[in-house]
């Protein structure tokens, strides 16, 4: 084994790869099971974007809070939400993380700092500001992270949150996961200011653009931005340029994509292939070690699906529980 040239230890690298592989396997399985008609509701898959979730979440602990999007499975897994509870939730079963009553777009686990996937576009940003304000009041060094897609970044709530975070100097990071399409509308048509860094500057905060398919680029930039926020340096924006490997939602015919676009992305810009090549070529981790993780992850996802299918549905009396919080 060669000296490790990376800013993460071998164990941390293996953990990051495991996170990314778990997200990919989870999403690939949902793609298959949804097509078969096994899953109720809508699902929006994160496959292809794993380097962003893994690179950012590697810097967070359970005290840090994230607000996710409708495409939230990757954020949940990277933040440590139990994969079996997630699968149960997506299958609509009572073993789910929200007892099967939320589904894909409402998976949450407050103990893990995961404030929820969110079916309302841009609605995570004010929640992250709230988490940031709480952390600032408590003085515990925590941060709030708002994930948003390129489409939802045009929502009023998101823009208001940028302003709020800047004027209150909150420890909040706005991560724009720019996969190039708002549903089926290209960024070129939909985002007036053309550059997210320009948008951040307009709200008096720094913005940084990174290659969101490069785990190490995301990891290093996110580390600086999160440290800055923890130390009182205020909010920042991080744009991760990335690609999704599936449609906007499952069942999307993707007629807006160029012929061969996805095949080209899978062949040349797959973040999992990129990180695998980097760590093996550096001689830090072997292909066999990665394959072993692949096998363990496949088994975990298989178990998660088996258990989700076997689990009971919520009952009628569950309809009125978990509606109000008790203080």
């Amino acid at each position: 084994m060669s000296d490790n040239p990376f800013p993460l230890s071998r164990d941390e690298l293996l953990a990051a790869y495991r996170t990314m592989r778990t997200i990919r396997e989870f999403e690939e399985r949902l793609h298959t099971d949804f097509a078969r008609g096994d899953i109720p509701g809508f699902v929006h898959l994160y496959a292809g974007e794993e380097a962003s979730a893994a690179g950012i979440m590697a810097h967070l602990n359970d005290n840090d809070r994230i607000a996710s999007t409708h495409r939230g499975h990757g954020h949940c897994i990277a933040k440590g939400v139990d994969v079996k509870a997630m699968m149960g939730e997506i299958y609509g079963k009572s073993t789910g993380s929200c007892r099967g009553k939320g589904g894909s777009m409402h998976i949450a686990d407050i103990d893990k700092g995961m404030m929820g996937a969110n079916g309302i576009l841009g609605a995570g940003a004010p929640l992250a500001c709230g988490a940031g304000l709480a952390a600032k009041y408590r003085g515990d060094g925590g941060v709030g992270i708002s994930f948003v897609g390129d489409g939802a970044s045009n929502q009023g709530m998101f823009l208001e949150s940028l302003n709020l975070a800047a004027v209150w100097n909150l420890p909040v990071i706005f991560v724009v996961e720019n996969n190039g399409y708002a549903e089926s509308t290209s960024v070129d048509w939909a985002v007036a200011c053309d550059s997210y860094v320009d948008r951040a500057a307009g709200f008096g905060m720094p913005g940084v653009t990174v290659d969101g398919t490069d785990f190490f680029a995301v990891y290093e930039a996110a580390g600086e931005i999160i440290s800055r926020a923890r130390e009182g340096g205020g909010p920042s924006m991080l744009e991760c340029k990335m690609h999704r490997l599936f449609g906007h939602f499952e069942g999307d015919a993707q007629t807006y994509r160029a012929e061969g676009e996805v095949e080209n992305l899978r062949a040349n810009r797959d973040c999992l292939t990129l990180i695998s090549d980097r760590v093996t070529e550096a001689g830090v981790i072997t292909r066999a070690e990665l394959s072993a993780i692949d096998g363990e992850v496949a088994e975990l996802i298989e178990q998660a699906v088996t258990e989700a299918i076997a689990a009971p549905l919520p009952t009628l009396k569950d309809l009125t529980t978990d509606v109000y919080a008790s203080y």
Binding site: D194, S195, V197, D198, A200, V208, A221, E224, I225
Partner: peptide, 21 residues
């Protein structure tokens, strides 16, 4: 180049971010 002046030095060093316009 539309993407020059976009890297981490906006955060670590208050570098300029010249707008697209």
């Amino acid at each position: 180049n539309p993407v020059s002046a976009r890297d981490i030095r906006r955060v670590v060093a208050n570098a300029t971010s010249l707008q697209i316009t």
